[in-house]
Design a protein around this nucleic acid. Structure first.
Length: 444
RNA sequence: GUGGCUAUAGCUCAGUUGGUUAGAGCGCCAGAUUGUGGUUCUGGAAGUCGCCGGUUCAAAUCCGGUUAGCCACCCCA
């Protein structure tokens, strides 16, 4: 290989694929840590599945449109393979394969990248992270309610102060469509309905009429119900009358009523959970409760955590019935929102303490101090070169270290270290034996 | 996948009707400051103007293609 300029390979990433620098990665890992701990606190266990699957396992599950987005190719062994485009289809395959040994109900979380060959746009990439959690093998509404609780705890732990989890139930929508003889048009109608917030009542009616050929009056009646406003109790009362006689609709209402009752008695702030008959979620496979989560300070960014209940996850892989309910945190969207809300920190070091290297002849003391700090659970970086102390302080400042430890000939002869507080701009000399407790209290 | 906009230093962007050696701010590196960061001052490095081709005496500038990004639609996290 020549080192001439013209032969250098251009460093570049593929369309829709991204690199993450330390500050971005710190924020990502922080969010993932929170998701992990909340999921675990409800008993969800981690799993992972391969990025690559047989194409037949993945394809044909989300309609033609999503098949077109799948990265698919023939591998070196002439197999027809595809990269996973979500975590739900792999879960279906996984569940069908292992349900015998796992038993039900089974709760898993899966935090992993997925790939879609669609056109990238703002907040949309060809490789992105999903943070799914699902409870499968039970039809109990209790699992639906706990799914809501998980979403609530997740947002709370992330530090979002104002958010709304909008809840609806597909059965309620189906009951309504049933009463208006619109069941054959379910997919088109719900897809149009889902855009209500974005495009408004008239445009939704127009789209329904255009896509299904129904007359505007009937479309309007769907909207009348979808636009119901008020407390969950008020909306439920109106729906009760509207859906009377529809078994499906009444079942959906009963589940919603139970859910809101649990919200009230389990200490979830009432104002965070709304009953919104207009949300439908695009995915065809939802059959019961559906959720989406909007940020109070940035609703226009869209749902940051959505999900719902499905009747039979694994029917394509096994004859065993596997109903389930779950949701997914949109990590990239959440991060974009946090960035816009100024919630991300700027530090690019994961360690709070920098041990400066003042005098290279004492290298062992500096290295030993680093080890001592880490042994006490304090992250510490030892500056690798005995450069000017000003330079090292500059580095500490830029990287966002909270404390810097400094010791030269004077300190070593007195048996002390200087602890410099970068934020406050002050420092104190501390005997070597008291360094650790002193730092621990400073970092509190 | 369809339509539109854009691409100049690490980042944000100037760059006149095509004209000689392409600029600024921020950042980066060094020095002022060989025992102390954030402020300030001084200096420095860094661009074959996304890439390929065409028109022209001459292209960052005009044209075509290509790659990437942004916006809308579609769909979705």
């Amino acid at each position: 290989m020549s080192s001439s300029k013209s032969q250098k390979i251009k460093p570049q990433t593929l369309r829709g694929f991204r690199d993450f620098l330390p500050d971005q990665m710190m924020a990502r890992e922080h969010l993932i840590d929170i998701a992990r701990s909340v999921y675990r606190s409800y008993g969800f266990a981690p799993i992972d599945t391969p990025a690559l699957e047989y194409a037949e396992v993945l394809l044909g599950k989300g309609g033609e449109e999503s098949d077109k987005q799948v990265f698919r190719f023939t591998d070196q062994g002439d197999r027809d393979v595809a990269m996973r485009f979500d975590l739900t289809v792999p879960l279906a395959r996984f569940a069908a394969q292992y349900v015998q040994e796992l038993g039900v109900p089974f709760r898993r979380y899966h935090i992993a990248p997925v790939w879609r060959g669609e056109r990238p746009a703002r907040g949309r990439f060809r490789e992105f992270m999903q943070c799914d959690f699902d409870t499968i093998g039970t039809t109990s509404n209790s699992a639906d309610i706990e799914t809501l609780f998980v979403i609530n705890d997740l947002l709370e732990k992330i530090g979002i102060e104002r958010f709304t989890i909008r809840v609806n139930n597909r059965r309620v929508l189906n009951g309504l469509l049933e009463k208006h003889d619109l069941l054959p048009h379910t997919v088109s109608i719900l897809r149009a309905l889902d855009k209500l917030d974005k495009i408004g009542r008239e445009a939704v009616i127009a789209e329904m009429v255009e896509r299904t050929g129904i007359d505007p009056q009937r479309a309007g009646r769907v909207l009348d119900m979808a636009e119901l406003k008020g407390t969950p109790e008020e909306v439920l009362a109106v729906l009760d009358g509207m859906l009377a006689g529809s078994q499906t609709g009444e079942l959906g209402l009963a589940n919603l009523r139970e859910l809101f009752s649990a919200v009230n008695s389990c200490g979830i702030p009432k104002e965070r959970i709304s009953l919104d008959v207009a949300i439908a979620r695009g995915l065809d496979y939802y059959t019961g409760t559906i959720y989406e989560t909007l940020l109070g300070d940035l609703p226009e960014i869209g749902s940051v955590c959505s999900g719902g209940r499905y009747d039979n996850l694994a029917e394509l892989f096994t004859s065993q019935q596997l109903p389930g309910v779950g949701a997914s945190l949109g990590l990239d969207r959440m991060l974009a929102a946090m960035e816009e809300l100024g919630m991300t920190q700027k530090a690019t070091t994961p360690a709070p303490v920098l041990v400066t290297m003042f005098d290279a002849s004492h290298i062992n003391e500096y290295l030993a101090m680093g080890r001592a700090l880490r042994k006490s659970g304090i992250g510490a970086e030892v500056y690798p070169e005995a450069k000017g102390i000003g330079k090292q302080m500059k580095y500490a400042d830029k990287k966002g270290f909270r404390l810097a430890l400094i010791a030269g000939a004077d300190e070593f002869s007195q048996g002390v270290w200087q602890i410099r507080n970068l934020k406050e701009g002050n420092q104190l000399a501390v005997p070597a034996s008291e360094i650790i407790p002193q730092i621990q209290s400073l970092l509190k």
